[in-house]
Design a protein around this nucleic acid. Structure first.
Lengths: 348, 348
DNA sequence: TTGATTTATTGGAACGTTCTAAAACGAGCT
DNA sequence: AGCTCGTTTTAGAACGTTCCAATAAATCAA
């Protein structure tokens, strides 16, 4: 059964006894056609089991209603959150976002972007894979397709981006640890070919300096931005001659890794070594000990990015302002009690 | 700069001094055209900044190269895993999967499915939102578009599905707890309008019966399938007159919730109450205490589902066999040591 | 040389929409 | 009757590709 030939606008026209133009008008909800005709047509549409062919339509129309979302790591709940925020605004704009995963692989990303363009997306939100260069977006610029970066920006900043205030977040975290009485601090995770790494590591450094920590008391350990990386960083740091007593981590995953490694060594996170994360994923509050982390309004950033593309599509421009989202430190248990219960004035 | 008119196959033809047909052939990598001509054309393609218009192509071609993946909850790392598995096989088949999230909302799902069809997907993998009925897939059947369900099946089983062996998994979990010496067991989470719930709860019941537990010693508590639901279930169970001492949970999220609730009451999971999860998400092994859980090869199921659609597309059929994936119990710490150190023969 | 055969190339008709310009239809006025 | 206005409807030309059938060019056999 079924397998009937694909019904087209013409079949509907025949069925309803009108012209294809009329059907087209009905499909677009035009107010030109007489209500009775409209209902007649709509009935025919139902009857023949019609599926709108957007490809054919796009051939004539200026642009489609699909927006692409290209994400570098879908398995990181953090990015899933971002996606959710975007979806919220797209949904109310009657746009369907198509998500694709690049698994942090620039080659895959290239394919995905290509495919999205071929599909005729109206705009793109991209959380670029590590190692992506601005050139990757040349083709879109040339084709006049708006692109907004999310969470990570390009080194040269030529593509509009929506990012959290990484610098301030890391500084906040460092200040918190220092206020807790720590004097030898570390920064764990990330690699110097990532822009975010620089923003966070620099913020960390500045936060330390501003609170009187000497450069030789700061340890910066690069590493993967996941649990395994966090474990490696911690191990590396603790074998140093004069090891740190606290660390700001590149993200929560790294922080979890560091805490895991601490436990493996019989040390208790919070008591024997303080850890601060970054991103404040849902997991952070449920972990034991609950993780102190720099909270980023991920879903909010997602919404922001979505609004940006929408606006760019509307005004058919390919440029837009960057947006830097506010951050704030959520204090939980992973830094233990104050080591030095005197100070009381802090950043907020 | 840029903003140039969109280049078409004709522009390339003009640039390269050949006919549009030749360009089309080159684009498809046909062996008909002379290599030198091909390179000439390829150069022209580069020069004019051409973007292939798949919509136009699909107008003539039988079917497109895009496959839709509709997922009910992208924020659940479990589903992200599933997506990753599928992507792996699609990638090697030269297909780009477009993912869309339905956030467990049937209405949203309807929109998403519609949009995917309009976009002309060649096939669909769907992890249906709760409350989805088989009718939701009528349109696809009518249009002859292959659909494979993942992780959840329809009550009437008319749509091919790829699912884990829920029944066996839950039975395994129950048997394990009984072997540990527990005699009053509970099943936490899920609602009776979900097929999976029945499969798992029935498996639990059967596992209990097979090991000599009387029906009155089994407690079944329905609830949301997330952390919050798990907490609620535990609280409900412990206020019973003769409370259970162990629980098989609908999934890991519920198990985490239950453990959280235990802690809140000053009870230690594993020691004071045994908990088994289902799905074995990565989180399970890192949790404290590490969660004993029924492992499902999620990525494997994803691959399986992907292969299924691919095969269905190939053979232009809309029917396929169901696939039930193997499960196995991963024993960790959340059930504590044996309460009764005698038995030694078990299911594997 | 002339066909016959193979190898490369091409014109033109689809495909299913949208959109412009024009037609058909009433009504209301002279 | 003819004219002018709305209001509805429609024919037909796009849009950018594929693919069939046809042509052109090159090669070979005699």
């Amino acid at each position: 059964m079924a397998a009937r030939e694909k019904a087209t606008i013409l079949d509907i026209a025949r069925e309803a006894g009108v012209s294809k133009s009329t059907v087209s008008l009905v499909l677009q909800g035009s107010s030109l056609i007489r209500p009775e005709t409209a209902t007649k047509v709509r009935k025919a549409i139902e009857d023949v089991g019609y599926v709108y062919n957007r490809g054919a339509a796009n051939l004539r129309k200026a642009h489609s209603n699909v927006i692409g979302m290209v994400i570098n790591d879908l398995t990181n709940p953090f990015f899933a959150e971002l996606a959710v925020g975007m979806e919220r605004v797209f949904q109310s704009a009657g746009v369907v976002p198509f998500i694709a995963n690049t698994a942090e692989n620039p080659v895959r990303q290239e394919e995905v972007l290509k495919s999205m363009m071929e599909q005729g997306v109206a705009g793109l939100i991209v959380s670029p894979a590590r190692g992506t260069t601005a050139e990757a977006f040349n083709r879109m610029r040339q084709a006049g397709i708006p692109v907004v970066l999310a969470m990570r920006r390009m080194p040269d900043g030529r593509v509009p981006a929506v990012v959290p205030d990484n610098h301030r977040g890391a500084a906040l975290a460092a200040a918190h640890l220092i206020r807790k009485g720590h004097r030898r601090l570390a920064f764990f995770g990330g690699f110097s070919d990532m822009v975010v790494y620089h923003e966070r590591a620099d913020g960390f450094r500045e936060g330390c300096e501003a609170n009187g920590i000497a450069p030789e008391d700061m340890t910066i350990v690069e590493g993967e931005t996941n649990r395994r990386g966090g474990m490696a960083c911690l191990d590396a740091a603790l074998t140093l001659p004069d090891p740190p007593t606290a660390a700001v981590c590149f993200n929560d995953a790294v922080a979890f890794g560091a805490m895991l490694a601490l436990r493996k060594r019989g040390l208790e996170p919070g008591r024997d070594f303080a850890v601060v994360g970054f991103d404040d994923v849902v997991e952070a509050q449920h972990y034991v000990p609950a993780l102190t982390s720099v909270a980023v309004d991920t879903a909010g950033l997602g919404e922001r990015a979505a609004h940006s593309v929408l606006r760019m599509i509307q005004s058919r421009t390919t440029r837009a302002e960057d947006h830097v989202g506010a951050v704030n430190l959520v204090v939980r248990e992973s830094c233990g009690p104050d080591l030095n219960a005197s100070k009381d004035e802090v950043f907020s």
